[in-house]
Amino acid sequence: MPEPGPAPLRLTADAWESLFRAQVAVMRRLRRDPSFQKLALGEYDVLFNLSRCPTGWTRLNELNNHLLISQPSLSRMVERLEAKGLIQRKQAPEDQRGVLLALTETGRELQRDIGAAHVRCIHALLGPVLDEAEMHQLLALTTKIRHSMENK
């Protein structure tokens, strides 16, 4: 049996459009979730990504690789989050131009609180739509896409 080849151009475009529109629809619903009254979704994304750092600290430019905002926008957001007492920064010891970021204890607590509500909201939105097998399939497909982009 021959290996399947690449998808036709039109199917690829239709699938991308569908994925993008589904993501937009879900994000619009998530923005209305009451858990994001305390912190904007984009600001929460920064806290979430910082919470996943194994050492607790990450470089500003590494954080920027996980977000959909420009470096100048991230720098301004970092200043706002630092002013709110949610993150801290310091110079990278091996590179005086580098900036390291980490959550404060207050930031970690807020991320956990919002995160727990956020997960319940996502489950309420997607749980009734996709069964367990479909969730596994969605996870596998989106992971495959993401990993292929990281290797380019």
Rank of each mutant, 00 (worst) to 15 (best):
R120W: 05
Q23I: 11
R21C: 07
E94N: 08
A124N: 12
S73I: 00
Q111A: 11
F36R: 12
I145P: 00
W57F: 02
G56E: 02
I114T: 12
L30D: 08
K90R: 15
E132V: 14
G115H: 09
R76E: 11
P4L: 11
K90L: 03
I87F: 01
S70Q: 09
L30N: 10
E134D: 10
E3G: 04
R146H: 11
N49M: 14
D95N: 06
A133T: 12
L39E: 05
H66T: 09
L110N: 07
R32S: 13
C121W: 07
L50R: 09
L130R: 11
H147S: 12
R28Y: 05
C53M: 14
L67Q: 03
A116L: 11
G127L: 06
K84I: 02
A7Y: 01
R120N: 10
I69C: 14
L126T: 06
L74Q: 06
P6K: 09
K90F: 00
A124E: 11
T106D: 11
P4D: 03
L110T: 03
E43K: 13
Q88L: 06
A124I: 14
T104E: 02
R59F: 02
T143S: 07
G107W: 02
S51C: 04
E132Q: 13
D33M: 08
Q137T: 15
E79W: 09
I122Y: 03
G98S: 00
S148Y: 10
R10E: 11
D113A: 10
L47S: 08
S18N: 10
E3R: 08
A124M: 07
R29P: 05
N65S: 08
N151F: 01
E3Y: 12
N61R: 06
G56T: 05
D113L: 04
L103W: 03
K38Q: 15
R59H: 04
R31C: 10
Q96C: 00
T12F: 07
T143F: 07
R108S: 05
T106F: 00
I114M: 06
R120G: 02
A117Q: 13
I69W: 00
R89T: 03
I122H: 09
V119E: 09
E82C: 04
L125V: 08
S35C: 15
T55A: 13
H136G: 04
H147C: 10
L130W: 13
A92M: 03
W16K: 07
I145D: 04
A102R: 15
R10P: 01
L39Q: 03
R80W: 02
M77C: 10
P2G: 11
A133C: 06
V46Y: 12
R108H: 08
L47I: 06
D113K: 15
G42Q: 15
H118Q: 13
Q96G: 01
P54Q: 11
L68I: 08
G56W: 09
D131M: 06
A7S: 13
A133L: 04
T106Q: 09
R59W: 05
M27Y: 12
I122A: 09
W57H: 05
S51V: 07
K144V: 10
H136P: 00
L9K: 15
R10Q: 08
V24D: 08
K38S: 15
M77S: 14
Q71W: 00
L11P: 00
L103H: 05
G5H: 04
N64H: 04
R31D: 14
E134C: 05
V119N: 04
Y44Q: 12
A40C: 07
I145K: 10
P8R: 13
W16S: 12
N65W: 02
I114S: 08
S148P: 01
